[in-house]
Design a protein around this nucleic acid. Structure first.
Lengths: 205, 205
DNA sequence: ACTTTAACCGACCACCCGGTTTGTTTTCTA
DNA sequence: TAGAAAACAAACCGGGTGGTCGGTTAAAGT
């Protein structure tokens, strides 16, 4: 698999700038030529390495997006005792990168999920797989927190995960407008309130 | 303004089916010909009534989207004493239409906001204006609720509005996948929890 | 009945995009 | 060092898109 060739270097260059442009302009609004122009490469090079634009994008999803989602949104949460604190920090960090107009991969996932809805079913499946992994890990982190006494035992962990992801996806849409920093601050204050409502209500009898 | 002519009828037909296709396929993925084919009309008719595709879309935003947003997401909330109950019902209704794959105009707004981000600044401004109106009204409804004793006086109404809209926008992305009905149920359960955390904490001294 | 004008048709244009093909350069290897 | 294979260049193709334009129908006014 690991063809220690020049091949890999070029493919990775294409994929990283591809993701950049797909993220900022959208998949359908980014032509293959746009990516190649930025790299001073030609169509021949592209179609030598990739079957099609769709195949190219799917490889980006699996090689870049999936791994980034894991390292930024999943790995920081799992394996700790108190998931609520971890979730708060994780969201805070992710939104902070968003404030600085850097690539926030949660937002990337959200954008692509809306862009491909009802259009490219194949790509949609890959995107949704990534999302599912995130969701499952968030649910199990909450359940573990419940087991360890950091989350109230009446909390519906699946519902909480849905709500958390929803709010996160949504706030990224709002942050493209005016004063993203202020919006982040407001969002985080209410997120903390919500997370507090998940804490154990009283000392168990 | 009101040219009681055939003009208006044709323009409205174009706009309604235009919104339908733009919503389900996206703006850039819907050609003018797609719309015209569905109406058995020709290019000549279209460009007789509208300057451009962009102008056409902006008119759709102002004539259809803005009014729908108002009647579905703003008007049901304003003018009542307890905003928390109204918000819950309003979101419930809106998501119920979403479950049935009908056009949920909040989702429409969310989709367009993500689709045009960084692309068409002119359209973006129009979309954001609509969003702002929604946000302002939600904030003032919460403040009024605070005044009337339905919302805790420590609540940051702007932050709460941000959080509510965020969660609403976000859940619509999740509902395109598996089991939208289940996701709606989970979302609503947590929304109720959050809204409860906005209620007055204790009887005032 | 005749003219005017609003409403509409459909061929056409320039452009863009994904993809193919043919040919050239680089790089590895025997 | 010769040749084969890998890596890339660039012209080209077919389909689609936003938009134009001269012409045609239908209605309205006189």
């Amino acid at each position: 698999m690991e063809k220690t060739l020049k091949r890999m270097a070029t493919m990775q260059r294409m994929q990283t700038t591809g993701l950049e442009l797909f993220y900022s302009n959208g998949y359908y609004n980014t032509s293959v030529d746009d990516i190649l122009k930025k790299l001073s490469l030609s169509k021949g090079a592209f179609y030598y390495h990739f079957e099609s634009k769709e195949d190219f994008f799917i490889q980006i999803i699996q090689n870049l997006l999936a791994r980034k989602i894991y390292s930024v949104l999943i790995e920081p949460i799992e394996g700790h005792d108190n998931p609520l604190e971890r979730i708060e920090d994780c969201f805070d960090d992710a939104l902070e990168t968003a404030v600085h107009n850097e690539m926030d991969f949660g937002c990337v996932l959200n954008n692509f999920l809306t862009e491909f809805r009802g259009k490219d079913q194949k790509i949609m499946k890959h995107l949704f797989d990534i999302f599912s992994i995130w969701e499952v890990n968030l649910v199990s982190a909450l359940q573990k927190g419940k087991f360890n006494g950091y989350v109230d035992r009446h909390v519906d962990c699946e519902a909480a995960a849905t709500y958390l992801i929803s709010s996160y996806f949504g706030v990224r849409t709002l942050m493209v407008g005016t004063a993203p920093s202020a919006r982040k601050y407001r969002f985080m204050s209410q997120l903390r309130m919500y997370l507090k409502s998940l804490e154990p209500k009283a000392i168990a009898v």
